[in-house]
Amino acid sequence: MKSSILVFGSTNFLATLPDQILDTNIFSIDIVTSLSQAQSCIHITPIDIILVQASLEGSMELCSWLKEQTKLSCVYCILFEDRPELLTQKSQENWEWELLVNAAALEQGADAYVWQIPENQTTYSLANFAANYQIIIAQFTVGLRKAQKYRDLLDKNALLSAIALADSLTELNNRRALEWDLPRQVQQARTLKDPFSLIILDVDFFKKVNDTHGHLVGDRLLQLLCKRLQNNLRSQDIAFRYGGEEFVVLLTNTSIEEALNIAVRLNRVVDESSFVINNQLSINITISLGVATLEPEDNETGISLLHRADQCLLAAKETGRNKVVSWDEHHHISHLNSVSY
Rank of each mutant, 00 (worst) to 15 (best):
residue 89 Q to E: 14
residue 35 L to Y: 06
residue 118 P to L: 08
residue 271 D to E: 07
residue 28 S to Q: 03
residue 261 N to C: 12
residue 192 L to K: 14
residue 27 F to A: 03
residue 258 E to I: 09
residue 225 L to A: 06
residue 204 D to I: 05
residue 241 R to E: 01
residue 145 R to D: 14
residue 13 F to N: 06
residue 118 P to N: 08
residue 323 K to A: 03
residue 278 N to F: 00
residue 213 H to R: 11
residue 290 G to R: 00
residue 272 E to F: 14
residue 109 G to V: 06
residue 338 S to T: 15
residue 200 I to R: 13
residue 167 D to H: 05
residue 85 E to P: 01
residue 338 S to I: 15
residue 183 P to N: 00
residue 105 A to Q: 06
residue 265 R to G: 01
residue 301 T to H: 14
residue 179 E to Q: 14
residue 136 I to Q: 13
residue 70 T to Q: 15
residue 232 N to Y: 09
residue 341 Y to T: 13
residue 31 I to K: 15
residue 274 S to Y: 03
residue 26 I to Y: 13
residue 326 S to Y: 11
residue 34 S to Q: 02
residue 229 L to R: 02
residue 257 E to S: 15
residue 236 Q to S: 12
residue 189 A to C: 07
residue 302 G to M: 02
residue 84 P to F: 07
residue 160 L to F: 03
residue 184 R to D: 08
residue 92 Q to Y: 15
residue 266 L to R: 02
residue 319 T to S: 13
residue 251 L to W: 04
residue 42 I to K: 12
residue 284 N to F: 09
residue 146 K to Q: 09
residue 142 V to W: 03
residue 193 K to D: 10
residue 116 Q to Y: 08
residue 60 M to P: 01
residue 279 N to I: 02
residue 171 E to L: 14
residue 5 I to Q: 00
residue 301 T to R: 15
residue 81 E to R: 04
residue 143 G to Y: 04
residue 290 G to L: 00
residue 146 K to R: 12
residue 23 D to G: 04
residue 95 W to I: 06
residue 196 F to S: 11
residue 86 L to V: 07
residue 150 Y to T: 02
residue 283 I to N: 03
residue 194 D to R: 15
residue 70 T to F: 10
residue 98 E to C: 04
residue 214 G to E: 11
residue 230 Q to P: 12
residue 206 F to C: 01
residue 53 Q to V: 07
residue 317 K to H: 02
residue 38 A to P: 06
residue 76 Y to Q: 09
residue 206 F to D: 04
residue 59 S to Q: 07
residue 311 Q to W: 06
residue 165 L to F: 11
residue 249 V to L: 15
residue 81 E to F: 07
residue 80 F to D: 07
residue 201 L to W: 01
residue 214 G to C: 10
residue 299 N to G: 03
residue 56 L to R: 14
residue 252 T to Q: 15
residue 18 P to R: 09
residue 248 V to E: 15
residue 315 A to K: 12
residue 172 L to I: 09
residue 59 S to A: 15
residue 107 E to G: 08
residue 277 I to L: 01
residue 4 S to Q: 15
residue 54 A to M: 07
residue 339 V to P: 00
residue 281 L to I: 02
residue 82 D to Q: 06
residue 34 S to C: 00
residue 192 L to A: 12
residue 197 S to R: 04
residue 335 H to D: 07
residue 83 R to I: 11
residue 210 N to H: 14
residue 79 L to I: 06
residue 123 T to P: 02
residue 63 C to N: 04
residue 158 A to K: 04
residue 234 R to Q: 14
residue 322 N to C: 01
residue 109 G to Y: 05
residue 59 S to G: 09
residue 80 F to L: 11
residue 288 S to G: 08
residue 27 F to N: 07
residue 25 N to R: 10
residue 287 I to M: 12
residue 187 Q to T: 12
residue 43 H to W: 13
residue 316 A to H: 02
residue 54 A to T: 09
residue 173 N to W: 12
residue 86 L to D: 12
residue 237 D to A: 07
